[in-house]
Design a protein around this nucleic acid. Structure first.
Lengths: 203, 203, 203, 203
DNA sequence: TATGAATGAGATTTCATTCAT
DNA sequence: GATGAATGAAATCTCATTCAT
C-alpha cells in the first residue's frame, strides 16, 4: 500500500479530508463516506489504506502526540530557567492545539465511545503528565510547593491547560471578547506558575 | 402520564436505569432499549414519559446543574473567609461529581454530537464560570493577582476542576495509587488558592 | 354496552370525535388516540364500545348510506317529472355530502387499504348505482339514449357526482372562485340531464 | 448512483418492483421491503436511488402525467373534428389508465395521507382540467351549452372519466359482465358528448 | 489503484391494543 | 363504565463494510 506516488497522495488526501471533517462535524458525527467525499476518493478505497475511520484517527493521533511531546520538551532542554521554560512550553502547547484541532477533537471523542482507544490515549496522557510531574519535583527540590503530590497535581494542571485550549479554540461561537494568543498564554502561565512556585501552604 | 404512584415509579425507574447505563456504557453507546431493560420497562413506555434518550438526559442534566449551583454557592454565603469557602466549595464539587457521574458523562458526550445540547450546556457553564470570576474580582479588590483577566482565568480554573474530577472518577481503571477524597480536594485547593492569591506577577 | 345514559353519551362522543378527526386529518392519518382525545375519553374505553377505529367507521358508514339512499329515493316517489326529480336528487346528494364529509372521507380511505371494507362498500355502491340505472332504463323506454348500457352508464354518472362533490368539498384549499350550491347543482344537472336525455347518438 | 448500466438496471428494477407491489397491495399497504424484495434488491439500496417510497412514487407519477398529457393533446392537434377528437382522447385515456394502474393507485392513495403530495397532484390536475375547459369554451363559441361554467363543468367531466376508469380497472373483482374497451369508450363518449353538445338548457 | 453497487445489522419510533385498578 | 399504564409488533432508515469490475 502506498508504494507509488499516487498511493501516497491518496493517503495524504484521506488524512486531510478526515482532519477537515473532524474539525467541521466532530469525529463522532463524521461518516466514513463524508471523509471519502472530502478527499475526493471512494469510501472503498479508504479501506485499502486504513482499517477504517478509527485507524485513520489513530495514525493522526500518534503523529500529533509525538510532535507535541517533542515541542514541549524543547524549552526545558535549551537552558532557560524553569519559569521561563514553562511559559514557552505553554505557548507552544497553545499553538500546537490550534494547528491540530482536528486531532484533539477526534481523540477526545473517540475515547468516549471506544475503550481500547481510551486506554491507548490514557497511556500517552500519562507520559505527558509525567513530564509535568517532573517539573513539580524539581520545584519541590528547590523548596517550593511542599507536600503537593507531584502526579496528582500534574494531572490537575494538565487538565487545566488541555480543557482551556479546547474550550477557547473549538466551537466557541459566541465570544464576547476576542482572546489573543498573548492573553491566553499569559493567563495560563500566571495561574500555573503561582500554583506551583509558592512556599507556604494555605491553611 | 405519571399521574399515579405507579407512573411516578416508572419515571423514576427510567431515570435510574439511564443513570446506570450512562455510567456503565457511556451516553453515546447507550441504546434506548438498554435503558428500558435496565428499568424493567418496555422501550415504548419510555416514549410516553420522554421524547427519547436525549430528553431524558436533558431532564437529568437540568436537575444536576441546579443542585450543583446551589451547593457551590452555599459556602460563600455562610460567612467563611474566601479561602476556607473555596476549599469547601471544591470539596462539594468533587463529591457532587462523584454522585452524579452519569449526568456528567451524559452531558459531556451529548454535547459532542448535538449542537443544540452543546449550546444549552455552554450557557449553564458560562453562569458557573461567572461565579468563579466574581471570586477572582474580590481577590483583586483585596490586592491579589492584579492584571489577571477574571473571566479568562475563571474559565481556566473551571477547566481544571471539571476535567480533574472527570479524569479521576471515570474509567480510571488502572490507578497505581488510590486517590482519597482528602488528597484530591487538598491538591485542587492548594493549586487554585495559590493560583489566585499572589501579589507579584511572574516576570 | 351503552345501556345507561352515560354509556350512550360516550358512544355519541366517540362518533362525533371520530367525525371531527376524520374531517380534519383524514381517516388514514387518524389515530385511535386522537379520536379518544377528541371525545374526551380514554382510548381503552373505545374498545368497550367498538372493536376499533374501523368498526366505528363501519357504523358511521352504514348510517350514512342508509340516510342517503332514503333521501335520494324521495324525489322520485313524490310525483315530480323525471328531469325535475333528477335535479332535486342531485341537490340532496350535494347537501348530504357536505354534511357528512367525515363519513365519505373515511369510507374512501378505508376502502383503499382494507379489502373487506372495500367489498362491503362496493356492494352498497352497486345498489346506489342500480337506482341510477333504473332511471336510465325509464328514459330509454321513453325513447332516449338508445344503446346506452344502463349499468355502465350509471356507474359513470355515479363516478361523476361523487368525485365532483368530494373534489369541491374536501381540502379544496385554493379556490379561485367560490362555488355556490346553486351553481354546483345546476352544472351537474345540465351535464347529467343532457348526457341521458338525447335521441341521436354521436357518430 | 446509476452511472453504470448495472446501476440503471437496478433503478429500473425498483420502478418495476414498486409498480407491481402498488398494483397488488396498494401504495399504502406497500412496505419498502416489499418493493425491494420484488426488485430482488436490498432495502438499503433503494435509499441510494430514492429518498424513500414516496420519492419513488413521485418519479413514477411525474412520468405518468407527462405521458398522459402528451397523449391526450395529440388528437386535438391532428385535425380531427372536436367530437371525433374527444372520442380518441377518451380512448387513449382509458388505455393509459389501464397500463398505468400502479401509478394511479399510488397517486390516489398518497394524496390521501400526504398534504404535500396532494398539493402537487392538485396542481397537475388543474392543468388537465384546464384542457377540458378549453374544449368546452370552443363548444360554447359554436353555440353549444350556453351558461355552463367551463371550469366547473370540466372538473365534473374529469371526475367522471377518472373515477370511472379507476372503478372498472382496479379491484373490480366480481364483475357480472365483462366490460370491453369498446363499450367503455363508447359509453363515456356518448355521455360526455351529449353533456356538452346541446343547445337548449334543461328547464 | 480505484470505484460504483450492494448489503447486513441495528436502533429508533409509532400505534393499536390489552391489563390492572 | 372508565382510565392510566404498559406492551408487542412492525416499519423506516442509517452506516460501515464488502463485492465485482
Amino acid at each position: 500500500m502506498a508504494r507509488t506516488a499516487r498511493g501516497r497522495a491518496t493517503r495524504e488526501a484521506f488524512r486531510e479530508g478526515a482532519r477537515r471533517v473532524f474539525t467541521r462535524d466532530g469525529y463522532l458525527n463524521a461518516r466514513l463516506t463524508d471523509i471519502a467525499a472530502e478527499a475526493n476518493r471512494s469510501p472503498a478505497l479508504l479501506y485499502q489504506h486504513y482499517d477504517g475511520k478509527e485507524a485513520l484517527l489513530a495514525e493522526l493521533a500518534e503523529d500529533f502526540s509525538e510532535q507535541l511531546q517533542a515541542k514541549i520538551a524543547e524549552p526545558y532542554r535549551s537552558g532557560l530557567d524553569p519559569i521561563a521554560a514553562l511559559r514557552e512550553a505553554i505557548r507552544l502547547f497553545w499553538l500546537h492545539y490550534r494547528e491540530h484541532l482536528a486531532e484533539i477533537i477526534g481523540i477526545t471523542q473517540a475515547a468516549m465511545i471506544d475503550p481500547a482507544f481510551a486506554a491507548r490515549w490514557r497511556e500517552i496522557h500519562r507520559s505527558a503528565t509525567e513530564l509535568i510531574a517532573t517539573g513539580i519535583r524539581s520545584a519541590q527540590a528547590a523548596g517550593y510547593c511542599p507536600d503537593l503530590h507531584p502526579e496528582i497535581a500534574a494531572s490537575a494542571l494538565a487538565a487545566m491547560i488541555e480543557q482551556f485550549c479546547l474550550t477557547w479554540q473549538y466551537q466557541n461561537d459566541s465570544p464576547e471578547f476576542e482572546l489573543t494568543d498573548e492573553t491566553a498564554v499569559e493567563t495560563l502561565w500566571q495561574l500555573w506558575g503561582h500554583a506551583v512556585y509558592w512556599t507556604d501552604p494555605l491553611q
